[in-house]
């Protein structure tokens, strides 16, 4: 049984379709990587899976609960099994790194403060920030914030880890370490992960399954080998890093021509 299942999901912003009848199933204990161009709706899909926005139509079920229709209490119950790192990190600026990580532990568990300190230290150490616990988010570099967000996502030892571009802005070494960390969590704790990334190497390193998003739909979903063998032109373009098709150039030229004509017609 899939742990997350998205059915016919449609999302609109101001009448503009961003997701259009999207279906996705995520199996427990697997790492699913979501690939797709910038602006293709990856973060939008994650926001739906986190229950942060209501879809136009369709449904999202997590662990058997339809989060688009359930009560707030049920939604919060589901959310306690999620660990999320936002694309923008979204650390609490008024709290130090330690407190950012400790927040859920302090409020959702009855652990003793000394135990919480230890857990927080471990989570920060895992992303290489053990010495920076006292700093506030403003005092961190972009990559450090990203890592801190991952540490915060891990705080409650979640069943499902959702990471939005965790390795964007990280140097290759740290990015590779992060990949190993995700693989380690899967191997040791059978964690389920949904990871958005633009790094193809990283995607093919960690993924059990890859889903390619394009124009609000999933173009291809499958194992690494299935995706590598996929012949869809868009998938090939993405995987082979081919620049956008030159059909855009004539469009630009005609646009400029019309612009010049309209300027000439004015006076």
């Amino acid at each position: 049984m899939s742990i997350i299942s998205v059915r016919d999901l449609a999302v609109e912003y101001d009448g503009r379709r961003v997701l259009d009848g999207l279906n996705l199933d995520i199996e427990p204990g697997q790492i699913t990587v979501l690939l797709g161009g910038s602006g293709s709706g990856k973060s939008t899909l994650l926001r739906q899976i986190l229950g942060l926005e209501h879809p136009k139509s369709g449904s999202v079920s997590i662990k058997g609960t339809d989060i688009t229709r359930c009560s707030q209490a049920d939604l919060n119950k589901v959310r306690r099994s999620l660990g999320v790192a936002f694309q923008s990190a979204a650390l609490f600026n008024s709290l130090s790194l330690e407190d950012n990580v400790a927040l859920t532990l302090r409020e959702h568990t009855a652990l003793a403060p000394s135990i919480i300190d230890l857990i927080v230290w471990m989570k920060l150490a895992v992303v290489g920030l053990a010495d920076f616990g006292k700093l506030h988010p403003q005092e961190l570099s972009g990559g450090m914030k990203k890592r801190a967000a991952v540490a915060r996502a891990l705080a409650m030892d979640p069943e499902i880890l959702v990471l939005d571009e965790p390795s964007a802005g990280l140097d290759p070494i740290v990015a590779a370490e992060l990949d190993e960390l995700i693989l380690f969590l899967k191997g040791t704790f059978q964690i389920t992960a949904l990871v958005v990334t633009h790094e193809l190497d990283s995607a093919f390193r960690i993924a059990d399954r890859i889903a390619m998003l394009f124009d609000g739909r999933l173009l291809a979903v499958g194992t690494k080998d299935e995706i590598r063998a996929n012949q869809h032109p868009r998938v090939r373009q993405f995987l082979d890093r081919v620049p956008g098709s030159p059909v855009h150039m004539p469009a630009l030229a005609s646009y400029l021509e019309r612009y010049v004509q309209s300027k000439e017609a004015k006076p």
């Binding site: 986190l50 707030q72 119950k77 306690r80 936002f86 979204a90 650390l91 859920t104």
Partner: peptide, 18 residues
């Protein structure tokens, strides 16, 4: 407003806080 813009409010929600 700043918490809204920096997605801190969303982060609170997904951490099961109201």
């Amino acid at each position: 407003g700043t918490m809204k813009v920096t997605e801190e409010i969303d982060a609170l929600k997904v951490m099961a806080f109201e």
